[in-house]
Every structure is written in C-alpha cells, then in structure tokens.
Amino acid sequence: MFEFCADPASLEGASWLACYLTTGKHMNLYWSILTVLSLLLITAPTALLFGFAGASAARSTFMPVRWVGQVYVAIVRGVPDIAFFLFFVIALDQGFEYLRHQVFCPDWAEPIRQGNDFIVCKAAKLPLSTSPQWVHEVYGFMLAVITFAIVFGAFAANVLLGAMRAVPHAQLETAEAYGMHRRQVFWRILVPQMWLYALPGLSNLWVILIKATPLLFLLGVEDIVYWARELGGTKHARYTDYPHGDWRIWYFLGLLVFYLVFTHISERVLAKVNRRLSRGQATVGATP
C-alpha cells in the first residue's frame, strides 16, 4: 500500500506495523467487518418481519394458520444453530436449484440425485458456475441472510407472542366495545403497544445475533473471526514477508474490543428506543 513497504525485511517498528496492517490480507479483514455489519443491518429487520408473521400466525383464530406459526417456532427453536446452518442452507440451495432445473431443463433424462451427488443441469446452477466469484459471494451472503432471518425470526416470534399477550386485555375489550373489528383492534391497539413489552427480549436477540456471525464461515462467507484466526496464526518466513509467532491472542483481543464496543453502542440505542416507547404508557418505569 505505502511505497516504503516494497522491502518488508528492512522495516522496523512503526513502519513495519503500518505495512503489516495494510497487506491485502488485512484489507480482507477490514472488508469482512463491513460484510458483518451489513449482514446485521439487513438481517435484523428481515428477522423481525419473520417473527411478526410467525407471531401473528401463531395467535390466529384460523387453525391451519395457527399450526403453521406454532410449528415454525417450535421446530426452528428446537434445532441447534450449527446443525441448521450446515444442513438447512445446503437444502435451501438445492431446493432453489431443483426448481430452476424443472423450469430450465425439462428434457433432462438423468436423475438429479446420483448417490451422494446432487446434479442439476448447467443452466440451473445457482449461481452459474461461469459467474464471477463475487456473484458466488453475494449469493452465499443472501443465503446467510435468509437462514439467519429464519432462525432469529422464530425466536423473535416467541418474544412478540409474549408481548402481544402482555398488552392488558382490558384495552382490547374496550376497543371492541367501541365497535372496532378484530383487525382494527390488532393494528391500532395491540401492535402499537406490544413493542414496549417486546423490547427487552428483542434487544437480547439482537446481541445474540451480533455474536452469531462466525457461523457465516459455514456458509463460505469469510467473517471477522475467520480472518482474525487466519491472520493471527503462526506465519513463517517461507510463506510471508511478515513472519510472526502465534498472535491469535492479539487479534482476538481486538475482536473482543470490537464486539464490546458494538454491543455497548447497541445497548445505548436500545435504551433510547425504550424510553421513547414508554412515553405515556402506564407501565413500571415509564415516564408520564
């Protein structure tokens, strides 16, 4: 990056560090921070949407819909994250490819499952094997968002369900007494008030989501923990211009600081949101 980095062996002290920290490999680390942050920013609202849909379904008066909601929450919450990330994602990917295969290659004669192999025609591959690497990475990222949203959506659904039940029943009855429909009661009385009750649970989920990003590497998306481990590992002069011993502890200390700062900022923001939501609510700790 800098001109004086041309001969790393002659560097010392601060200039060595400056060159070391700006190698292409470190740039990957910095980019992975952005990847993780954008994943969080996209996943959180998506998961909330899944959660809201799940919770609404689970308390529906129409039995099949209620069952769908309850089964979604029960199954996803019951399966360990790592199993979900290993198997569900591959299944999701294969599901997409299977559908595309049916559309693009109707004349295909060979079976799709050949022993352990999953074979679809070239046009159905997702992404196409001719696509550049960044398309593959964006696709992996997208799968990650969907998987995270489904997993965290199930937890959020449970939180929201509890929050919906926590809204004083008398309020809903009063609304009905005023002649509101069920739907009006839901959207005008229940939903605006439930957030206050949901917030502690949701903020918990957010912090867990922040820390769950190392699961990304299972999907082939290289996250900060992967790069910290890779960069911190022992490097020998044969394989690098910047040899060093096992520095993982320093990289992980850096990660520790990063996550602490990040969760701290989150907590302050959430506290503000909480104050805003409590305004005018007759609950403990609320400001009038």
Binding site: K25, M27, S129, T130, E230, R238, Y239, T240
Partner: peptide
C-alpha cells in the same frame, strides 16, 4: 466453463493464504 477449485487455505506448504489475501 469455469472449474471451481476448493481448498482450505490453512495448511502450508500445501495451501495457505498469502499476504495479498
């Protein structure tokens, strides 16, 4: 056609990630 070569990138001298990433 592009053949995608999968490797681990953590087992020198067989395969590793160099300074350029």
């Amino acid at each position: 056609d592009v053949v995608r070569m999968g490797t681990e990138g953590a087992y020198p001298p067989y395969n590793f990630i160099n300074d350029k990433g």
